[in-house]
């Protein structure tokens, strides 16, 4: 029985944007490499390598990885437990009993805010988990729901 709910469709856009930012870093590295090659007469294949590196990382960070990640991401919040599934090559599925949850919070970065999304962070006494991108309303509802369910039973740690 797999968790059913997917995260917001817009998460894909957010990840693509941060993917572009990440590949910009690679672009800077590649450009530095190419410039150095011209300046110091390094062998020409370094230029090809740099270009390939940039194209490949752009494809990975902007297209492939975000879609794979989005496809895998599932979550489900039930009465007694929270289940989260994530991963690209390795699929991870985590089960957190509701009574173990110590606090929940939602947070937003600038890109998430632009798309009216929020991240839900769930902490137990020893672990931290997050659901990366939900519609703001859904995230808020979830936060209320979890904190209400979690406070039902009080136990030592």
């Amino acid at each position: 029985m797999e968790p059913q709910k997917r995260i917001a469709k817009n998460a894909l856009k957010v990840w693509r944007i941060s993917g572009i930012l990440e590949s910009l870093l690679i672009l800077v590295i590649s450009i530095t490499g190419i410039t150095l090659t011209y300046l110091f007469d390094f062998p020409r294949w370094i230029i090809i390598l740099c270009v390939c590196l940039f194209i490949l990382s752009f494809y990975l960070f902007v297209f492939l990885l975000p879609s794979l990640r989005w496809k895998r991401w599932r979550y489900e919040v039930r009465e007694d437990e929270i289940e989260i599934q994530s991963g690209i090559w390795i699929i991870k599925r985590t089960l957190i009993p509701m009574v173990r949850v110590q606090h929940v919070e939602t947070k937003q970065g600038p890109i998430l805010r632009r798309y009216e999304l929020a991240t839900v962070e769930i902490s137990t006494a020893a672990t931290n988990h997050e659901i990366p991108a939900l519609e703001i309303k859904e995230a808020d509802d979830l936060r209320f729901y979890i904190s209400r369910m979690a406070s039902v039973e009080e136990e030592d740690v």
Partner: peptide, 15 residues
């Protein structure tokens, strides 16, 4: 009642 979370993971080879 002392377990905080259980995670299980599968990679491609395990699958």
């Amino acid at each position: 009642n002392r377990i905080q979370a259980i995670t299980y993971s599968t990679n491609w080879f395990q699958l």
